[in-house]
């Protein structure tokens, strides 16, 4: 186990990144298959899978940003509260300031980028620990949300609601309902955005100079510097990208819920970190994969769905199950990597 064939057909030990990615994908499919076999019901419908995507489009995008920062060896715990701030700002813009969907999108991106720039500068150029910087960012976003507007309200803007309710039907897929009618499967706009993001980021990380620099800096920042990589710029870019993705993810979240509230996306940063870990990203940096993160989000929400469908319909149980799942994943990862180390 843990070896792959290279082009010449010789066995090469699998890289840590690919090994963890493989584990994640296998576990996700095994879990989903088990759910289909033993729980049946909803899991046999293709729409359940797409609903998982609909519910988690924003989390996928946020987790991608988190993974990138984690790959460079940092962390960003501000993304959850930042999402709440973006929802609130966009909502206020749409309903109180006669904004259009376009201005709401631009505002979301601007807030995300602003956070990315400031946090990136503090982390990369002033060498302040990312945890502390983004902790402050989290506090700031949390406070600002209630300063912008302290109560929850639903957006009434019609153009926005039309966009929110747009369904993209998937050709040929769907299920037959009780009356024998074919119901086509659909996803929301946000899912399309999320999928495109995942593809673009996968390309960025795999084939571009910047993407490889993220890995190098996370692997060993001093070495990366000696190898001629601009470490500061790379770190800055990672936080900027994470901010931008929080902007996109924030708007996608907003598009899904259609309201602004200080309590939105509570704990999203921890979900994003958990998804990244389940997806095989290591907090120590240098190891991780966007596709893994994607499956990490899916695994996390699948387990939540399973718990709900098992009739343990209680927020307490969901939390405990998720915790157990993270625990199992971490232990498996650490055992696999430790064994590999001791063999080489």
């Amino acid at each position: 186990m843990g070896k792959v064939l290279n082009r010449k057909g010789r066995l090469v030990p699998m890289s840590d990144t690919n090994l963890l990615l493989t584990i994640t994908i296998v576990v996700f499919f095994a879990m989903y298959l088990a759910a289909m076999l033993f729980i049946g019901r909803g899991f046999l419908k293709i729409q359940t899978l797409f609903n998982i995507l609909n519910e988690n489009a924003a989390l996928i995008i946020l987790s991608c940003g988190m993974s990138i920062v984690m790959i460079t060896g940092g962390i960003d715990i501000s993304v959850g509260k930042l999402t709440a701030l973006i929802c609130m700002s966009a909502a206020v813009n749409l309903d109180y300031h006669n904004g259009s969907v376009l201005t709401a999108i631009l505002l979301s991106l601007a807030i995300g980028i602003a956070f990315g720039v400031v946090q990136g500068y503090l982390v990369a150029y002033l060498n302040i620990q990312p945890f502390i910087v983004t902790l402050a960012g989290m506090f700031f976003a949390k406070g600002m949300t209630t300063i912008v507007n302290s109560t929850q309200f639903n957006v009434q803007n019609e153009a926005f609601l039309a966009l929110k309710n747009t369904r993209v039907y998937i050709p040929f897929l769907g299920s037959v309902n009780k009356l024998g009618k074919f119901v086509p499967a659909y996803v929301e706009i946000g899912v399309i955005v999320a999928i495109v993001t995942v593809i673009l980021l996968f390309i960025l990380l795999r084939w571009t100079r910047l993407g490889r620099s993220f890995y190098a800096v996370g692997g060993n920042s001093q070495s990366a510097n000696m190898l001629g990589i601009n470490v500061r710029r790379t770190r800055f870019a990672a936080h900027l990208l994470c901010g931008l993705l929080a902007g996109i993810g924030g708007f996608v979240y907003f598009l899904h819920v259609g309201s602004g509230a200080p309590s939105h996306a509570t704990g999203a940063e921890m979900n994003a970190i958990a998804s990244s870990i389940i997806g095989g990203t290591m907090l120590t940096g240098g190891v991780g994969n966007i596709v893994g993160t994607f499956f990490g989000v899916l695994s996390l929400s699948t387990i939540k769905n399973i718990v709900t469908l098992l009739g343990l319909d209680d927020a307490w149980w969901t939390n405990i199950t998720v915790a157990v799942m993270i625990c199992i994943f971490l232990v498996v990862q650490s055992i696999v990597l430790l064994r590999k180390r001791s063999r080489s």
């Binding site: 962390i75 945890f131 921890m270 970190i273 958990a274 870990i277 290591m282 907090l283 120590t284 927020a315 307490w316 149980w317 939390n319 405990i320 998720v322 915790a323 157990v324 993270i326 625990c327 971490l330 232990v331 650490s334 055992i335 430790l338």
Partner: peptide, 27 residues
């Protein structure tokens, strides 16, 4: 145990109890 014997980064290891702790308290 997770940190010292399984070599899991502390923030991540304690994320487990962070997620489940309040549920356990209620239980």
């Amino acid at each position: 145990t997770l940190v010292a014997y399984f070599n899991i980064q502390p923030m991540i290891a304690t994320l487990i109890l962070y997620t489940a702790g309040r549920s356990i308290a209620a239980w």
